[in-house]
């Protein structure tokens, strides 16, 4: 059971990456390849705030939210707004991700930095398995964020507006929606959320400059398994990837875990090309 808890916690992180992809994707049809790097930046800021500056927990969260939120807005203005066409965005968002990878390595070095958890750190015995409190928090946060995302997109005017912008930008504009504000707002929101998660993810993953690329890959797989644009899909996909990674690591050996993840991805894409919860996206030509 311990590996299940570990897998679920890891899966929660992948789900959070996938949710971040979704927030931006749903509202502006942009796939932000740097989303995982924003989460990584959050863990570094959490380290900087809590270890280097020794700030109180609340201030650390605020610092993470503000810094990562601002970086996300900078990304929107430089790597997204100025670019037209999906192919261009692929290059610029990957470029921004690489930039963040490099910058964090230059500032904090290549060694993993331990981010202390602000809550209790005593191992708990739950359902005959060992679990860290931070792991339970991660699982809970992922579930709550996914449900919140569903509630906003289905139940509020803002949510309807977001979906409208993603379906047809110009038609949304003609309904009086400030499409630019929505796009930048979605980036800011995804950034702030990524920042707030830094102090929660850091204790589990450490703050390390390679975190972004490994999270990006698995978050992407989680999203592809669950279905693009679906929050419940991101959650289920994330948990699936986390569980496959930890269970195959336990029974088949560490070297098999990534292999098995991609095997699962291949299977899902073969049997349900839009993912478990996705829908076909029509394109007009």
């Amino acid at each position: 059971m311990s590996t299940v808890w570990g897998g679920l916690a890891l899966g929660a992180i992948y789900a959070l990456v996938a949710l971040g992809y979704n927030i931006v994707f749903v509202s502006s049809n942009v796939f932000n390849f740097a989303q995982a790097q924003l989460l990584m930046l959050g863990t570094f800021i959490a380290f900087w705030g809590s270890v280097t500056l020794k700030l109180p927990t609340v201030v650390v969260f605020l610092l993470c939210a503000v810094v990562v939120g601002v970086v996300a807005v900078v990304e929107e203005r430089t790597a997204i707004r100025l670019v037209r066409g999906t192919e261009g965005l692929l290059v610029t968002t990957v470029g921004f991700a690489t930039l963040l990878d490099g910058l964090t390595q230059v500032i904090w070095g290549g060694q993993p930095l331990q981010v202390p958890f602000f809550g209790p750190s005593k191992v708990l015995d739950l359902l005959s398995g060992n679990v860290f409190p931070v792991e339970l928090v991660l699982i809970g946060v992922a579930v709550v964020l996914a449900l919140g995302f569903v509630a906003i997109t289905r139940g509020s005017m803002l949510g309807i507006a977001l979906l409208a912008v993603s379906e047809d930008r110009e038609a949304a504009l003609m309904r009086g929606i400030n499409v630019r504000a929505v796009a930048i707002g979605a980036f800011a929101a995804a950034g702030v959320v990524a920042g707030l998660l830094g102090p929660l993810i850091g204790p589990k993953t450490f703050a390390v400059a390679t975190l972004g690329s490994s999270l990006a890959l698995k978050g992407f797989v989680a999203m592809a398994i669950g279905g693009f644009g679906s929050a419940p899909g991101a959650l289920i996909g994330g948990f699936a990837v986390g569980l496959i990674e930890s269970e195959s690591g336990r029974y088949l050996g560490e070297s098999y875990s990534t292999l098995m993840i991609f095997l699962a991805l291949l299977l899902v894409l073969l049997l349900a090309p839009n993912g478990l919860f996705g829908h076909a996206r029509e394109r007009t030509v």
């Binding site: 309807i160 110009e170 309904r175 009086g176």
Partner: peptide
């Protein structure tokens, strides 16, 4: 707009509510 430009994936009610945005 031309070509009956409604939000095809959204329900009739969501389309109308959006009109009031």
């Amino acid at each position: 707009q031309e070509n009956k430009r409604v939000f095809k994936r959204r329900t009739v009610e969501a389309n109308l509510l959006l009109g009031g945005y």
